[in-house]
Structure formats: C-alpha cells, structure tokens
Nucleic acid binder design. Structure first.
Length: 488
RNA sequence: GGCGCGUUGGUCAAGCGGUUAAGACACUGCCCUUUCACGGCGGUUUCAUGGGUUCGAAUCCCAUACGCGUCACCA
C-alpha cells in the first residue's frame, strides 16, 4: 500500500461501548500503526439525536484509552479535517445536499412516515421488495407548494440510478457486486435536517480522506448505497473491509443474554486491557505461526488484513479467561489488588478505607492466590480465607481430617514450632512441616491436610506456607485453636 | 420474501488441488507438587449435504440445507 493509510473508527454514542466495536477499533488501530504514516481518526456519529448521549461518548473514549487504542485525529485531539462530531458538521452536508438537489440527483419527498409504512406493508404483503415507490420522485412545483402549504416537512431522497451494477472492493470478501435496483430511492436527510448515516458517512469518509473503511459486516449490505453516493458526488471510493460479526454462544449476535458485552464490564471484572486486546485480535484474525500470546507491538507487526477471516466468530469466554489468567500471572499483585478491592467492598469484606498495613497484607495475600485467578474479581472466591476468622468446615471429608488420631499431636507441635520462631516468614515456616513429619513419623498428608482444614476449612487452596506467612502467627494460632475446639 | 455474506472438532482456527487435516481454549489421562492451581507430556473430537470438474478435492464449479446480516426519517 503505497498511499497513506487513513482509517477511522466511527462509533455512535448510543450506549455502552460494545466488545464488537472494540474489535473494529482495534483492527483499524493495528492497520494505522502498521504503516509509518498511518493515521487513525476517531469520529463520532451522533446524528441520532434521540439516542446519542454525552455519557456514551465519554464511555467510548475512556474504553479506547484503557485499551491503549490511541487516535491521531478526531474528537479531543483535533486535526485538519474537523470537526469530528457529525452534529458539528451539518453545514458541510448542507452544501452537498444543495448540490445534489440542484443537479436533480436528489429530491424532496413529502410522504409521511405512516404513508411510507403503509406502502411498505403493501409491498411486503405481495412479497415484493419494500423499497420506495417514487411517489415524490417527479413532483411539480405546484405539488410541492401544496405539500408545503399543508405544513409537511420534507426529507431528501437520493435518486438512485436504475439498472446499474454497483461494485466495490472488499479486503475481506473480494470484489462485491450489487444491483442498484435493489436499493431504491433512500432518504439522505431526515425531516429534522439531520443527515442519515449512509449519507453522512460518505461525506465524512471522503472529506476526511479515509483510505480504508474497516468496519463490521452488518454494514456490508449498506455499502452499495454509499458507493452510489460517492459516485454521484464525484468523490473517491475508499477500499472497504467488512469484518465478520462476533456471535454469542448460541450463534446469535452478542447481546446481554450472553453475559458481559461491554468493554466496561470486563474492565470492572478485572480483565486486563492487554488480555482483551490479545483476545479480540484473535477473534477473526489468525497469525501465520502458532503464537497465541501477543503484545500490542507484536500484534502490529504480525497483523494483516489478508489473514482476517470471513466467517463469524463465537465469543469464547473460556479462552478470554485463559489469556487473561496469563496476563494476571505476570501482573504486579498491587495492581490485581486494586482491581479486586471494589469487589471486596461490594461483598462486605472491606468496610472502610484500609490502613497501609492492612493494604500491604492484602497485597501479600493476593500474591499467594494470584495464580488461581482468571480475573481480579475472583479474589472474592478466596476472601473467606483471608478475612474470616471463624472457619467454616466445607465438608465431612474435611471434618474427618480434623478428627484423625494424629491430628492433635500435629496441631500442637505445629503451634509450638510456630511460637518458637523468631521471624515468621516463608523461609522459617517451610521447614516446620518437614520437621513435624519427622518427629511424629507421619506422612505429609497427615501434616498438611489437618493444618489446611483447621486454618481454612477447605481441603484445597493456595500454598500453605504462603498463607501462614500472610495471616501471621497470632491469627494462625487463634484460628486453628478455635476450629479444633469446635470439632471436639 | 429480495439481496448479500458465511459453513474445517464443543469454541477460536491453520489450510489456498496431493498433508498422518497444524496449533490454541475447553474436556480428559499421566507426570510435577506431601492439597489445589501453575507447568510439562499424551488422548478424545472436525472438513454441512448432494452433484460435478480432475489421475487426485477441505481446497475449484453448481445446487440444497442451515446460520447470520440487510432491506429505517438507527448507526
């Protein structure tokens, strides 16, 4: 690609930032970063006045920043092709609309929504395509004046050329071809003066000199409408690339039913941005080799549009969890702790602000369980071990472990040894277990298990040595004593 | 319904006329670990169906089925 790469991400701020949108943004970003002069433009498509909100726009920006998907031109950062919010570009669209009308390539349509709806119904009933039948296609000046007098507010429709083949190039799907007759005269400017998506997007992409339009497949069927407009306006047609949709487990489009769908939800659950980026890249794109774990830099290096798949991909939370677990293991315990705290607060484990000492202890605890986590919120699954001093014995099997005839001796010896320690750290604690097996002549099972159950109530869990160190001598002794009292 | 896109194991997927049809997640077996997890080594499971073309087809062509998208004064 010799010309400059200029790609854009153009979300409409009508709700929480969707995971699918994040992938579109990611692919565009990767393309922009791959080429030295590549530019990513962030444009906001806010022409739907009823649904667009400032909060959504903020949410999208925050999510993009969190994911590390930086943009070179667009809202907040500016650029020479601004403004970058469609509602601030109305004067630009107006110019082109006037021109189209003057050239008779577009016309005013006074049909009301109910009239149009009735027409559509009728066509559908006959099993025909529900396209506009051209009622206002050739109105006389008198007819128009009549409608105006009635107070009707017109929309502007594009006069779609008949019997033409509309072709365009798609990087993912190859050469595409549609019949113009299947399109009909579509609305380009609403009655409130707002341009319709298919119109504004064409003008913006052309005016912002976008070279490649990479977006979701749901736009594929809309593309001929846009191509026809590019041609009518004598504007260069960009190269398209329609990436397939992300589906839920049941193969329908991802929705709330499938669990978390917004970037924000994953962020709050304690997924790491690098993991999400890594995972999203692998949904619909495959590297040449067998690598699975990619840093952003490695993705930029390896990414290319011709390895983007045509078929839709099912969002597999198990794989995301696996990737995230990988990044969690590499992360600093402090970081995971910070992500987990809101969840610990929510579950009532943490009441007020933590002191420095408490915080340090919590961090050490997180370090002990870090390898067990798929995402930070899972810390609450282990929180009882850390926060709850009255141990709940999880099963009869665990109880039996405590009733073992060797158990009292083990527990007592352990307490003595622990009390005798000058410094209570992992290095000092570890040998205790060995010594006990030797002195009491019992197997490791008989030492570790009763102590684990007395301390946590559970048969399985994080490393005991680490646990004893983090909990501290007093708490450990108090806990085992109380548990033993209770089983007797 | 028209138009369009798609269909390799439960999931992500490699493959682009000749392969024992990669790899990863999940599942599972063993090892490691005196628990679990991590990690290591194995295993089960796939070319939607039917026709062609070809010496040879997961790969090319045509049907059928199924899934999805779109046909808005939403984007």
């Amino acid at each position: 690609m010799s010309e400059q790469i200029r790609v854009r991400f153009a979300p409409s701020p009508t709700g929480p930032f969707h995971i699918g949108g994040a992938r579109s943004a990611l692919f565009n970003w990767l393309l922009a970063r791959k080429y030295k002069d590549g530019k990513l433009i962030l444009r906001v498509e806010d022409t739907d006045r009823a649904r667009s909100t400032k909060e959504s726009e903020e949410n999208i920006k925050e999510a993009l920043k969190w994911l590390g998907l930086t943009w070179d031109e667009g809202i907040d950062v500016g650029g020479e092709y601004g403004p970058y919010r469609q509602t601030e570009r109305l004067h630009l669209y107006q110019e082109f609309t006037d021109k189209l009308i003057a050239e008779d390539k577009a016309y005013y349509c006074y049909c009301t929504e109910t009239e149009i709806e009735a027409e559509r119904e009728a066509l559908r009933a006959e099993n025909k395509m529900p396209i506009y039948q051209g009622h206002c296609r050739n109105l006389t000046a008198e007819q128009r004046a009549q409608y105006e007098a009635e107070g009707r507010k017109p929309v502007v429709r594009f006069r779609t050329p008949e019997n033409q083949q509309v072709m365009f190039k798609d990087l993912v799907r190859g050469q595409m071809c549609f019949e113009s007759n299947g399109i009909g005269d579509f609305v380009i400017v609403k009655a409130d003066g707002m341009p319709v998506y298919n119109y504004a997007v064409v003008l913006d992409d052309a005016l912002m000199k976008i070279s490649h339009v990479i977006r979701a497949e749901e736009h594929l069927s809309n593309t001929p409408r846009q191509v026809v407009l590019f041609e009518a306006l004598n504007l260069p047609v960009p190269i398209f690339g329609h990436i397939s949709l992300i589906l839920g487990k049941d193969h329908s489009k991802m929705s709330k039913r499938h669990g978390a769908t917004s970037v924000d939800q994953y962020r709050k659950l304690g997924y790491l941005p690098e993991a999400l980026v890594n995972f999203l890249a692998l949904l619909g794109w495959a590297p040449q080799d067998e690598k699975e774990i990619f840093s952003a830099e490695e993705l930029i290096e390896a990414f290319s549009m011709d390895r983007v798949a045509k078929n839709p991909a099912v969002f597999d939370i198990d794989k995301l969890n696996w990737i995230n677990a990988h990044y969690i293991k590499q992360a600093k315990p402090e970081k995971i702790t910070m992500l987990a705290i809101p969840h610990l607060v929510e579950k009532g484990y943490i009441k007020g602000p933590l002191t420095d000492v408490e915080m340090a202890k919590l961090v050490s605890f997180v370090a002990v369980i870090q390898d067990h986590l798929s995402f930070a919120a899972q810390v609450v699954n282990f929180a009882d071990i850390f926060f709850k001093d009255d141990v709940l014995i999880e099963s009869d099997e665990a109880r039996e472990t405590l009733l073992d005839e060797t158990t009292p001796a083990v527990i007592n010896l352990f307490k003595d040894k622990l009390k005798a320690l000058e410094v209570v750290d992992a290095k000092a604690i570890k040998p205790i277990f060995k010594v006990i097996t030797k002195e009491l002549k019992v197997g490791g099972q008989k030492v570790y298990m009763p102590l684990r159950v007395a301390l946590t109530g559970q048969m399985h869990g994080p490393d005991l040595v680490g646990l004893v160190e983090v909990l501290g001598r007093d708490k450990v002794i108090k806990r085992i004593e109380e548990t033993m009292m209770r089983v007797k």
